[in-house]
Simulated scan of single mutants.
Amino acid sequence: MQEQHTQFATMGDGTRIAYRLDGPGHLPVLVLSNSIGTTMQMWQRQVPQLTDHFRVLRYDMRGHGSSDAPAGAYSLDRLGRDVLELLDLLEVDKAHFLGLSLGGYVGQWLGVQAADRIDRLILSNTSPWLGPAAQWDARIADALGAPDMREIAEGFLANWFPASMRAAGDPAVEEFRGMLLETDPRGLAGAFAAVRDADLRRTNTLITRPTLVIAGRDDTVTLASHGEQIAAAIPGARLLVLPTVHLSNVELPERFMQAVLEFLVH
């Protein structure tokens, strides 16, 4: 596997986005997009296997990881355009896209707004709409007013992992706790605003790219019914419901990867 260190790209609004490429340069590109509150490291378990088939492009969404965290509300349009600008910079005409949670929101936007840039689309543990807006306003205020990220991090972890994994002190839980604790509150608040203002329920019917939707049976954030709704809206979309909570790629990595590779490769 050919690896590069983290690099940076400057977007049209001046925000620096951290990204990384792994795998042979002649292979088709697969973009991986993260959940809110995480970094590109959330895909680390998948990269070795994926680079057998793809040139893997990971990035830290604005407000997260090593990317800049500008103050103020982010929009789904801006998050989607970050991906397009990154593809332009790297001279990638078309790529597969796999997004989980907030990354799945970005994937839906790309499927509607930039179908010519997307080959196959995987939307995991995501939703077309997570209203009402008032709950997000409260979470934005909490993020900006919190003395640190500890309480917020524990709330996320309770929604992301089954109680058994948390009680056992699973290394994955500790890894994601670390990502959350290092997240800039301004970045988290900005991303909350993007979710608050996004409603893809009607526009998803315009997606024409081959699409796989993965949902978690026990997901309490982006419910399995939300995945069903996305799959029903997109013509010809496939739906897979795994016995997981929110981070299906971490909780059931082998079954997750089997589904991804069967859809993208076979």
Rank of each mutant, 00 (worst) to 15 (best):
Gln2His: 13
Gln2Gly: 13
Glu3His: 14
His5Tyr: 06
Phe8Cys: 08
Gly12Gln: 12
Asp13Trp: 13
Asp13Met: 15
Asp13Gly: 14
Gly14His: 07
Thr15Ala: 09
Ile17His: 03
Leu21Ile: 14
Asp22Cys: 15
Gly23Phe: 07
Val31Leu: 05
Leu32Asp: 00
Ile36Ala: 09
Ile36Asp: 04
Thr39Arg: 02
Thr39Ile: 10
Gln46Ser: 14
Val47Ile: 15
Pro48Asn: 05
Leu50Asn: 02
His53Trp: 04
Leu79Asp: 00
Arg81Lys: 04
Glu85Arg: 06
Leu86Asp: 11
Lys94Leu: 06
His96Pro: 04
Phe97Ala: 01
Phe97Trp: 03
Leu102Gly: 00
Gly103Asn: 05
Gly103His: 02
Val106Cys: 00
Leu110Pro: 01
Leu110Phe: 02
Asp116Tyr: 05
Arg117Gly: 03
Arg117Tyr: 02
Arg117Lys: 10
Ile118Phe: 05
Ser124Pro: 03
Leu130Asp: 02
Pro132Lys: 07
Arg139Phe: 07
Ile140Tyr: 14
Ala143Met: 11
Leu144Trp: 10
Gly145Lys: 11
Pro147Phe: 11
Asp148Ala: 13
Met149Ile: 10
Glu154Cys: 13
Phe156Trp: 14
Arg166Ile: 14
Ala167Asn: 06
Asp170Ala: 12
Pro171Tyr: 12
Ala172His: 06
Glu174Ser: 12
Phe176Leu: 08
Leu181Pro: 07
Thr183Asp: 11
Arg186Asp: 10
Gly187Lys: 06
Phe192Arg: 06
Phe192Cys: 11
Ala193Phe: 06
Ala193Asp: 11
Asn204Val: 06
Ile207Gly: 04
Thr208Tyr: 04
Arg209Trp: 01
Ile214Pro: 01
Ala215His: 15
Gly216Cys: 11
Thr222Glu: 09
Thr222Phe: 05
Ser225Leu: 15
Glu228Asp: 06
Ile230Asp: 01
Ile234Asp: 03
Ala237Tyr: 09
Arg238Glu: 11
Leu240Phe: 06
His246Glu: 14
Glu251Arg: 08
Glu254Cys: 10
Glu254Leu: 12
Phe256Leu: 09
Val260Ile: 15
